[in-house]
Design a protein around this nucleic acid. Structure first.
Lengths: 193, 193, 193, 193
DNA sequence: CATGAATGAGCCTTCATTCAT
DNA sequence: AATGAATGAAGGCTCATTCAT
């Protein structure tokens, strides 16, 4: 079921490539496989052997974070307070998007290069769906919110933060503010309405 | 005061170029001046004479829509109901962004190729600011909303719609739904809370 | 024999074009007829009507200086001291080359765009020839120096100054120094050799 | 210490490129990398891989000759007769400039694309300086000649030969004649003057 | 497996020159 | 005569991808 384990040297190369890619993403440089190869001190072919396309590499870079978010989603499902569960999930998803530049393009992409990415995104979507369903049923969230809206909305907030600009430190604040506004809108109107 | 009116043939070419560009934008193809020239049956030089850069052409394509939005912003200022004014403005801005693919990149771009674009964006921003200020002072909108947040938030919603995907007809619905959520968040909590 | 006199407005344009070209040459910008037209506030066509090619314009810019040099050559022929005549002619030719950037390319060009340029260059050559002949016959200059060498040698010295570099003020000094060396080489060895 | 040796096929391409460039230089055609690629039957990218810029290719074409001149400069330093050493060095430098069209632009360029070129030019300059210093101290050369004048003067003589024109066979003669004149000017006047 | 040379389509841009208005 | 729009060849350069070694 898992891939054949890599030979030791191949594994080292794999690590190197991903590390270089991570660094490039962090400094905002677009991922170019030739470039990655040069900086990793490897041949282009080697990089292509490990990653069939720039997207595949990017998804690999994003994977740990996606894994963490998926795990977080699982944990959120265990929370007994539906609203708190949803709010926490969204907050952490958004902060990840703001913090890790590899996430936005992967999340927003309509197609996935790696199966694992598709699984993870699916897992996120389904955790989100459940959280939304519960919160709606508990009367904590407006029923207009469809489960499939969660991820797009997160991407939207992240994008809004990006357009707003400002230096990295302000970003988190802006993100929190925007998320608070959105959450305000998601929250069900007081029942006496 | 305006630019020297173009000669008739030049004007025809200008129109042709913009029409071709419009079509390319609509089908999601990135604007490339050589490509535009070929499709318009013109020399590259001709296209460059009219538009110094791909951005300039894109902004020209977007201009009519931006003009309309700016005019709409002016009209909104005349509305006596601060909340309704803001809501209407945002609704129309968002629908434009969803409908016209040339808008998003121009709105989100940090720099403008054409002075006119800068003016229009400025005009939009200032109309938005006034509308927000008024609505906040009237107690209709939460004070956490800063005037400078308006455009980023609109870009965000548009982006969320884009990520959500679906065919063009659904987009408008999705957009309305997302905007409604956001507006719900913007609206000041009832004072008796 | 002379060209039909220009209409007054045409003459004004001619002047404007040449003035702009002069300015461009002085600031080291390569002459491009489109560029000249724009700066002169004229259409390209107008510039082309007056000057069939960049070379023709450049030669026109250089003409006054060439005329002056040719006249100077004539005057030099009247000098009774053959060595002084030659030395003076060379000095003034060289200083002109250093001072006026339009001269070098015109002088070094194997072909001329304007008949007048050809005449002037011919006149310079023949003045130089006569001066050399005389000086050689008077025993003031080594007989290895052929009359046709004069202009190339001047171009060479000017080029040496150019390669040497340095700011404009130093150029004249360098030029004098280089010319002095060359003159030392031209001067006939003392007769007792 | 030197660059990694090229693979056999890469080396063949390198040679091809340089050979094509050499031919172009010899026929007076300006070096354009696209052109070189076409004539060599290679992709543009290949040429760019080997030579980052037209200048780099030109310097590579010129390199063997520059190496030879630099080596010659070293040998000249071993000559016990200061005047003969200088004269020989200049003669060979000049003949190279006349014979090899790649030399003039490289020598006259204020900046170098390849480090090796900078080294070689520096080496030439310092050999020249030493030769001049010696010759001046030995009383064989006028003290007005600064070491830094040597290369400019050589470029100047080469340029004079070029302007003089004529077919290649005559060029060497002309060059010798011009150099003889210049050397006459450099040589210190006999002390009894 | 690893290498990295080679590819070449393709983008942007400039500019001398022509010609309809 | 003047205009300036149009032309399009040409040059510079990049980069994703393939494949011989």
């Amino acid at each position: 079921m898992t891939t054949t384990p890599l030979r030791k040297d191949a594994a080292r190369n794999w690590d190197r490539i991903v590390a270089v890619a991570r660094a490039l993403v962090d400094e905002g440089t677009p991922l170019q496989l030739n470039d990655v190869a040069r900086r990793a001190g490897l041949g282009v072919g080697t990089v292509y052997r490990h990653f069939a396309s720039p997207e595949a590499l990017l998804e690999t870079v994003a994977a740990p974070c996606l894994e963490a978010l998926a795990a977080d989603g699982e944990r959120a499902l265990a929370d007994t307070d539906p609203w708190r569960a949803l709010e926490g999930f969204l907050t952490r998803t958004l902060e990840a998007q703001i913090t890790d530049a590899s996430l936005a393009p992967v999340t927003a992409a309509p197609a996935d290069a790696l199966p694992r990415t598709a699984e993870l995104k699916q897992s996120l979507r389904s955790a989100g769906s459940t959280l939304v369903d519960r919160a709606v049923r508990a009367g904590a969230v407006r029923p207009e919110l469809a489960p499939a809206d969660l991820l797009p909305l997160m991407c939207g907030v992240a994008h809004a933060v990006h357009v707003h600009g400002g230096d990295p430190d302000d970003r988190i604040d802006t993100a929190r503010r925007y998320l608070a506004l959105l959450l305000g809108g998601l929250r069900a109107a007081p029942s006496h309405t």
